Amino acid sequence: MMNFLSFFLLVVQTHSVTPVIHTLQYFTTACSQVPNFPEYVEVGYVDEVEMSYYDSNIRKAESKQDWMNKITAEDPNYWQRQTEKKVFRQHVSKDNNEILKKRFNQTGGVHTFQVMSGCEWNDETDEVKGWQQHSYDGEDFISLDMKTWTWTAAKQQAFPSKLELDQDIFALDYNKYYYTELCPSYLMKYVEYGKKVLMRTELPEVFLLQKTPSSPVSCMATGFYPDRADLFWRKDGEQILEDVEHGELLPNHDGTFQMSVELKVEVTAEVEGKYECVFQLSGIKEDLVTKLERRSILSNASHEAVKQINHTIPTGNVSVTATLAVLAVVVLLAAPIIIIFIIKRRRSRQAQYDSAAGDDGNELSERREG
């Protein structure tokens, strides 16, 4: 089974130049005994852009984008209702942590309980897909199979949850409705709200970097948007696959992205002009081409050049938002993951369905049984 970190990187690093696939994702983290960190955090993203936030310290659901406030024109109580639901889930998640501690024979220490759920929509084919994956203390726990609509337990301790959840016909029916209809409909609505931001295109600055004359030449593109892009080396017009190493797609602090690709080559007069770094961005027909020439390479030998590029290019460790930076603390403490809301029912099933049917699906795990 794909773990949370692998899944998250797959989502973030997908950058082939293909039809636009939009995503709506929710990440929640419930933790215990983590110093200087809220015991509950819930963050929503549209196309990797943070659009909503809640934590147990502020106890208020907030919009993180001006365009998300458009929803109050048709639903004035939207944010108030979101706050109430998140406060409820905050208390339920605390109970869940205690349940899981007992299942794993734990008495104390740092523990995290998280969930990643969402859907994607192909704006050309209208195909939709969904996911709901859960983990505890950095390891897969249970996930929902969207083909069979049954639960898959990754741990022995998850089997009691699987047996009960598979028998919860109401919750399974709601999941089918949410992932095939409700989630995509909200995703389309949010994309329409934020299309000026989400559908924009920004070309990058491209730099050739080399630590020493014998080091690989790194081609770095930074400041582009969206993340559906490709970066590769060509020689004599043909793409090179050997002696090439691709770096990760990384977020910049301003919401744009950066990526790099290294080429193992000795830069001599004979090879100058034969190699070129090519950047391609979805929606832009023309390639951005940078020829390999010694005079174009920035190296450690050029202090001013390195100083300039350090101001130009944010480091790959900078998170998209302060939220991700905070979540990184939990990652270090308990490993990255997706989590499980194994939840005690506190409302009647019909009342839950009525409450959720008109919403954005943030209460997906509210029907989980401990």
Rank of each mutant, 00 (worst) to 15 (best):
V87C: 08
V318P: 00
V191M: 11
T14D: 12
P314M: 05
V20L: 04
G44R: 09
Q239R: 14
K344P: 13
M199Q: 12
E366H: 07
F170M: 09
F104A: 05
P251Y: 08
S143Y: 12
W121A: 08
T180E: 15
H91Y: 08
A328N: 14
C119V: 11
W67Y: 15
F7W: 12
S214P: 02
P204H: 02
T14L: 03
E366V: 11
D360C: 13
Q210S: 09
I297Y: 03
P251R: 14
V217Y: 06
Q132D: 07
S214M: 06
I169E: 10
E304M: 13
S348P: 00
F7K: 08
S218P: 00
V217D: 03
E238V: 07
R81M: 13
V306E: 01
K70G: 05
H311V: 04
T14K: 15
M68H: 06
L203Y: 00
Y45T: 10
T323E: 04
V115R: 07
R59V: 01
K307T: 10
Q308F: 01
H253W: 07
F113V: 06
D173P: 00
D126L: 10
T290V: 13
V11C: 06
D145T: 08
I142E: 02
E39Y: 08
F4D: 15
Q82T: 03
H246M: 01
V43M: 08
K60D: 01
A334I: 10
W149E: 00
T201W: 00
F224A: 05
K86M: 14
Y136Q: 01
F279Q: 03
S52P: 05
G223L: 06
D236S: 11
S56A: 13
Y178F: 14
M68N: 05
K189S: 08
G109I: 07
E50H: 10
T222F: 06
F141Y: 13
G361V: 11
S302M: 03
R59C: 05
P38C: 03
S282N: 12
G223Q: 09
F257Q: 02
G358V: 05
L263S: 08
Q114D: 15
K285D: 12
S56F: 01
S161G: 03
T112K: 05
L281P: 05
Y353R: 10
W151H: 14
L292G: 06
S63D: 08
V12R: 09
E262M: 03
T29H: 12
G109E: 04
E124R: 06
V46P: 02
S16Q: 11
D236V: 04
Y40F: 15
S355D: 10
V92K: 15
T18G: 04
V41R: 06
D243P: 00
Y178I: 04
T290E: 01
R294Q: 13
E286D: 13
E181G: 00
P336S: 05
Q82D: 01
V265M: 04
F257M: 04
R346S: 05
T268P: 10
Q352G: 02
E120F: 11
E242H: 12
Q114L: 07
T107I: 13
V191K: 15
S93R: 08
H22A: 13
T83D: 03
